[in-house]
Structures are given as structure tokens and as C-alpha cells.
Design a binder for these strands. Structure first.
Lengths: 219, 219
DNA sequence: GCAGAATTTGAGAGTTACTGTCATTTGACG
DNA sequence: CGTCAAATGACAGTAACTCTCAAATTCTGC
């Protein structure tokens, strides 16, 4: 099969492709609705299929596992690109900080609240939480490869592995904290705190907030 | 295989309790052997039950999920106790370092190679890897509570959560690295490297080891 | 437009990890 | 020995997948 090269963008999606995207979204929307209504475990795939008006086979064709209906994250390429755009000699923690804050603002701008739904499911459903480890491992790999490129170190270098895994775990924990506290605080400020702790070498703050600085997040 | 009965401290346990321990081990040993022989996914629980000479019901009574046959770690209480024994004002990263190195030496002393088998399964089987996240979350909670006690901070404090999750993720990554490289290097030295990276704020080493400058503290 | 190729879909049967129930067995103990 | 509680096994049932194959749908060359 020889696709016509360089004929514009993917503006001209065939009917087939469009239907696929449509089906995918139908399944996901149906699933999210049912999960919210009756819970994840209490919602069989058959029911999702029925609600999305497809056969159960089709659901599994689009999402290899039920968990994948919730956990399909397409942020990795975005993060990767943004990360590559940072100055080469910048401290990794600082680079991540900038990239995350930027994409976070983007999300807020687009009123995308699916993160909250997703994060709640990740927190509450063990199966999803487990599968989350997989996607996090993937992000890990992506970020590590960027850091490897710019430091000249091999991608399987222990120190790189440690840096990225610790970083990602800490960030994940921060979002969890945010959701745990009802998304009350300012996520940006929380991320700042987290990255500071990391940059500080996992120590507690050098001085306790005994003065009248009203900086702390108040849930 | 003839089990040696009633030796050592098991004397005080009733026959019932001893049989329970025996059954538990029989299941686990059968499972490990079959997993090694034919792979995890290719080994149904029924087969494990048969090999262990118990009914499938019994297997599920001892291990709620198939993954739990692999992932039952009873190290948490040990770690917790050892951690509490450290000086209160010690840097958390340093406390962990000491505790881990001690228990590591203990493992090597007892010729316990189940860690390697386990870690390989964790690396290679997605289902187990996923469930691993759960047990790690549990360890997370335990360690966090110890740190909370000695710092006076609430257990759900963001900074504590960040410290423990980053720490555990980094340690897990280190063991993975060790297994990836065929358990060739010295695990203690690897742990040192890792904890140094954390204490250093996730930076790369200040200067590459090109000259003969006497390095920092090397025990 | 149309025939045929390629792809997607649905239906159904099969496997496996679990869950719940209940009768039987087995160790604990006076 | 007899009784009681705990452990076990047999069985039925559910739900998440997997595989296979035929029917429906879209694409392609003419």
C-alpha cells in the first residue's frame, strides 16, 4: 500500500477513520457516564457496549482492557516536545517544572476536567491504580530518553532512571494530594512545593513557617 | 520432599497453625516452580492447586489473587521497626540508607534469592507489575507514618508524601536496575548512588570521575 | 457506477480468574 | 470420646478477556 505523500494534513480523513474516532469516543463517554453513575466494578463491559451501541467485541478491539478505557493518555508526546524545547543545560527539575506549569495552564484554559475524573478513578479503583503504573513507566521512558540525549548519558543509566522515576512519582503524588483535598488548593503552588522538596534533597523546609507569611495552601 | 516438622520456634504453634503455614508455602513453592518452568500467564491457578495438592478454593483462600502468590511481602513491619530505631533528627534519606543496607546484608546472609525471582516477575509480567504499585503504596503509608511521627507533621502532609514516594520509587528503580544488569554489580553501592542522587536534589554528579581526586564518603 | 479487495464489525464459543455457598473433614479441648 | 470451631473441597456462577468466522461496510481500480 502506497499512501500519497505530502498531500496536506490529515484534514482529509476518510470515512473509515472518522467513524473509528467516533466509535472510540462513544465508548469512552458511555463508560465514563456509567462509571460515575454506578461505579467502575459494578459496570460490566457488556453494559458499556450496549450504551455505546456497539458489540462487546468492538469494545475490546478498541481498548485491550477495561482499565484502558480510563487510562489512555496522549500527553507523553506533548511533554516530550516541550521538554526538548528547554535549554540544554537547565536543571532537569527546573525544566520539568516549566513544562508542567505550562501544560497545566493549558488544561485549565481548555476547561478540561477529565483529569479530575480520571484521578479519582485512579485513586479509588485498585485495578486502575495498578494499570496506572504501566502508563507511568511509559512516561518514565520518554522523559528519560530526553534527559539521556541532552546529558549524553546512556538511557539506561542508573542516575537518570533514579531522577526520572523519583520525579514522576513525586508529581503523581502531588496530583493525588490535590484530588484528595478536593482540588481546593492551587495545583501550581503544590507543584512548586513538590519540586522544591526534590531540589532540596528530600529534606523538610529549612525553617518552619512561624512568621506571618500567608503562603501555605489552605484546603 | 519431606518437610521437617516441629523444629525451632514453631513448637509453640498448634498443629492447625503449622499446617496453615505449610499449605501456604506449598502453594507458593509450587507456583514459583511452575512460573519458572512455563511462565506466569501460562500457569492456571488450577494447576498450581494440583501441584500443591490442595483445591483451587484453598489457593484463593490463602491468596486473594494470583498475583498475591508472588507479591506477599512481610518486610514492612521489619522496615518500620528498624526505622523507628534510628535517631529522630537524622536525615530521612540517611535513615533509609542505613535501614536498607542493614536488611540487605541480612538477606544476603540468609542466601535468600527469592528477591531476584520476584523482581524478574515484577519486571516481566504486567499484571504483577501493576499489583506491585499497591504494595508499594502500602510501604509508602508505613514509612510516611514513621516520618510523620518524628517530624510532628500530619501523615497526609504533602511534603512527607513527596519525600516517601520519591524515595520508594527511586529504590524500586534501583533494584530493577540491578536485576536488569543481571545482578552483576554490588547492590549496596547502587543504593548509595541512588540515595546520593536524591540527597543532591536530583542533579547529575557535580563533576565526572576523571581524575584521582579522593571522592566523598565511601564506606 | 461497479466489482472485488481490504477492513471493520458482530456473534458465539471457550478460557480463566475470581466469588459465594454448603456439606464434609479435621484439629482443639474439656 | 464427644462436641465445637475452623479449614477444606466440590460446585455453581460471574465477568474479563481471547479466538474464530461470517456478514457488513468502506476503499480502490476500472
Amino acid at each position: 500500500m502506497v499512501p500519497t505523500l505530502g498531500t496536506g494534513r490529515e484534514r482529509k480523513l476518510g470515512l473509515r477513520e472518522r467513524k473509528k474516532i467516533q466509535t472510540r469516543q462513544a465508548i469512552r463517554h458511555a463508560a465514563y457516564r456509567l462509571f460515575a453513575e454506578q461505579g467502575y466494578d459494578a459496570t460490566p463491559v457488556d453494559q458499556i457496549a450496549e450504551a455505546a451501541e456497539v458489540s462487546p467485541s468492538t469494545v475490546f478491539r478498541y481498548f485491550p482492557t477495561k482499565e484502558d478505557i480510563v487510562l489512555t493518555d496522549e500527553y507523553d508526546p506533548v511533554i516530550e516536545e516541550a521538554l526538548r524545547a528547554r535549554p540544554v543545560d537547565e536543571h532537569p527539575v527546573e525544566s520539568i517544572r516549566q513544562v508542567l506549569i505550562a501544560s497545566l495552564r493549558d488544561l485549565v484554559l481548555h476547561q478540561d476536567d477529565s483529569i479530575v475524573l480520571r484521578t479519582r478513578l485512579i485513586r479509588d479503583v485498585p485495578a486502575i491504580r495498578g494499570r496506572m503504573a504501566e502508563t507511568q513507566a511509559e512516561s518514565n521512558r520518554v522523559i528519560r530518553s530526553v534527559l539521556a540525549e541532552r546529558t549524553g548519558k546512556p538511557a539506561d543509566d542508573l542516575e537518570l532512571r533514579v531522577i526520572t522515576s523519583a520525579l514522576l512519582a513525586a508529581l503523581h503524588e502531588t496530583v493525588m494530594y490535590w484530588v484528595d483535598t478536593g482540588q481546593a488548593g492551587d495545583l501550581e503552588a503544590l507543584l512548586d512545593t513538590t519540586l522544591d522538596v526534590l531540589a532540596r534533597g528530600l529534606t523538610l523546609p529549612p525553617r518552619p513557617p512561624t512568621d506571618d507569611t500567608p503562603a501555605g495552601p489552605r484546603p
